[in-house]
């Protein structure tokens, strides 16, 4: 590490000030050029539909009928409690996000570290841990429905054998969200793979340095692994939040929002308004509220990131 900075520094002195600033100037438009496809893509494929949905959120659009402008009526209906499902679904979703995101990050990180060790059969273990992410939900939901069965399900059979209290799992209003969180831990494979890629980029000699200083595994974790993977931790956290707020398929397939709206996830509620009740204008308003919520969360995370995310290339 040290030798690298040294060489670079030596070389840098050779570069004159003026040539550097011309590079900077060129970089300004080159940067836009490199980013142009992505920016164009955003303007063409995303911005239009976004503006359209924002406008529709101010109408009573029912699909195929002409939308009438209703001002902020849709938003008012949401916040003044006329629609009992709104706060319920927001609560359910927040509960899920706050419970699931930290757990998923920790479990995925832990698994990635395990699978980054030098063990026999690594290929097998990695594939095994990633498998639940690939198996179609239709197949895995069948297993889950059986596991969670309060009478005959494997989980309660185990609980009984261990003399632990049994649970109603997804069949009770109070346990359905924690159970879905537990279920989501099976599919952290994607997050785990991103961590694995991050871990791979940590040079071995960092760890060697700690070993020379007499540090143990915990020291390595705290002083090397976590700081150096903080960009991936940050990425996974942001994505966890964005994805968590928009969780849809699992509750849709497993619980249909029940029991007693205990798993009425926000997107499930939104989808129902949009396509079952054909209240597209109203659904757009629901979507924009979520948009704002997610944006605030993301913004706050970006703000804190300056304190704990370490980019080697930033040279801060």
């Amino acid at each position: 590490m040290q030798s690298m900075t040294e060489t670079a520094e030596r070389r840098q002195t050779k570069v004159t000030k003026s040539s550097l600033s011309s590079i900077r100037r060129r970089e300004n438009w080159l940067g836009w050029l490199f980013a142009a496809p992505a920016i164009l893509g955003f303007i063409i494929f995303v911005l239009g539909p976004m503006i359209a949905s924002l406008w529709l959120s101010l109408t009573d659009y029912k699909v195929a009928s002409t939308p009438n402008f209703v001002g902020l009526d849709n938003y008012q209906n949401l916040f003044n409690g006329t629609d009992a499902f709104f706060y319920k679904s927001l609560g359910v979703t927040l509960y899920y996000v706050i419970l699931s995101v930290p757990l998923q990050i920790i479990v995925a990180f832990f698994l990635a570290i395990l699978l980054n060790q030098n063990v026999k059969g690594l290929a097998f273990f990695r594939t095994a841990f990633y498998l639940p992410t690939i198996v179609p939900l239709i197949a895995s939901s069948m297993v889950w429905l059986w596991l969670f069965d309060p009478d005959m399900g494997l989980l309660n059979v185990i609980m009984r054998a261990l003399h632990l209290p049994e649970s109603q799992w997804i069949y009770s209003e109070t346990t359905v969200v924690p159970t879905l969180v537990l279920m989501s831990l099976w599919t952290v494979g994607g997050t785990m793979v991103i961590f694995l890629a991050g871990l791979k980029d940590i040079p071995d000699h960092y760890y060697e340095a700690i070993e020379i200083d007499g540090g143990n595994a915990l020291h390595k974790l705290i002083y090397i692994t976590i700081p150096l993977t903080s960009p991936t931790i940050f990425f996974n956290t942001i994505m966890g939040f964005i994805g968590g707020f928009q969780v849809f398929v699992q509750p849709y397939v497993m619980t249909q929002g029940g029991p007693n709206n205990g798993s009425l996830f926000y997107i499930f509620y939104l989808f129902r308004e949009a396509f079952t009740f054909s209240n597209m204008g109203y659904a757009c308003a629901i979507a924009w509220v979520l948009f704002i919520v997610i944006m605030i969360f993301t913004f706050l995370l970006f703000r804190t990131s300056q304190k704990w995310v370490y980019y080697e290339g930033e040279g801060r």
Binding site: A84, Y171, S172, E173, G257, G258, P259, N260, N261
Partner: peptide, 11 residues
Amino acid sequence: IINPALDQVWL
């Protein structure tokens, strides 16, 4: 509205 209420009945 009705179906969630009935969930508690079946339980």
